[in-house]
């Protein structure tokens, strides 16, 4: 997994609440057997016309969005299906962090395993960030994982929560399965006790 320390980037503002994983990546794209290359299908039904051409008014297609690594989304982002294809598609497009007032449980857990940082901020901070970014699409925001802070808008300095273990894994690019495998002896003992 890619390490995450500090990220400074312009942002893509996506205003809707409850964006579900069926929107992030519709089910018809789940027939793949690989993780790569899903970026083109990200938000597919919002992004393309019937004939497959990009819809000009969808935010991801606007020139100002190109190269952005931060998505500012609404509340309860990533609800619905457990498909890890959602964070795969977001990462494949280029996102490294998502700012929202709340995330669905499974999505959050999946994102953290793919080096995609869910940044949960208060509604007040969210509003300020969203407004600033909508007003000036060039606005750059900095997300600093060691200090768990979001800065970039004048005096605004917000913090976000993350559990110590996920933080440690992201900072060091540690893959959780490696860690889990180190408990082999304890797992064996547990299995013996139970049977």
């Amino acid at each position: 997994m890619a390490k995450f320390t500090t990220l400074t980037s312009h942002c893509v503002p996506l205003t809707a609440d409850n964006v579900d994983t069926d929107q992030i990546i519709p089910a018809r794209f789940l027939k793949v057997t690989e993780k790569h290359g899903l970026g083109d299908s990200l938000f597919s039904d919002w992004r393309y016309d019937e004939d497959g051409s990009p819809k000009r008014d969808f935010v991801l297609n606007q020139p100002e969005s190109q190269g952005a690594q931060i998505l500012i989304a609404g509340h309860n982002f990533g609800s619905g299906s457990s498909r890890e294809h959602a964070p795969w598609a977001l990462v494949s497009w280029g996102f490294r962090a998502i700012i929202a007032t709340g995330f669905a449980d499974i999505f959050k857990s999946n994102a953290l395993k793919n080096g995609l940082l869910p940044v949960e901020v208060t509604p007040d901070v969210h509003k300020k960030l969203m407004q600033a970014v909508q007003l000036d699409r060039g606005t750059k925001i900095t997300i600093d994982l060691p200090t768990q802070s979001v800065t970039g808008l004048g005096s605004l300095e917000a913090t976000f929560p993350i559990d110590a273990f996920s933080k440690h894994c992201l900072l060091n690019g540690i893959d959780q399965l490696g860690y889990l495998l180190s408990f082999d002896d304890q797992i064996t003992k547990y299995e013996q006790q139970r049977t």
Binding site: S82, D105, K113, F165, L177, L180
Partner: peptide, 22 residues
């Protein structure tokens, strides 16, 4: 409960998951 594909791999490999108590 539902899990993502990384966690499917975790369970296949170790029969365990890293979980925080809900």
């Amino acid at each position: 409960f539902g899990i993502g594909t990384s966690e499917v791999e975790h369970v296949l490999a170790t029969q365990c998951l890293l979980q925080r108590k809900a």
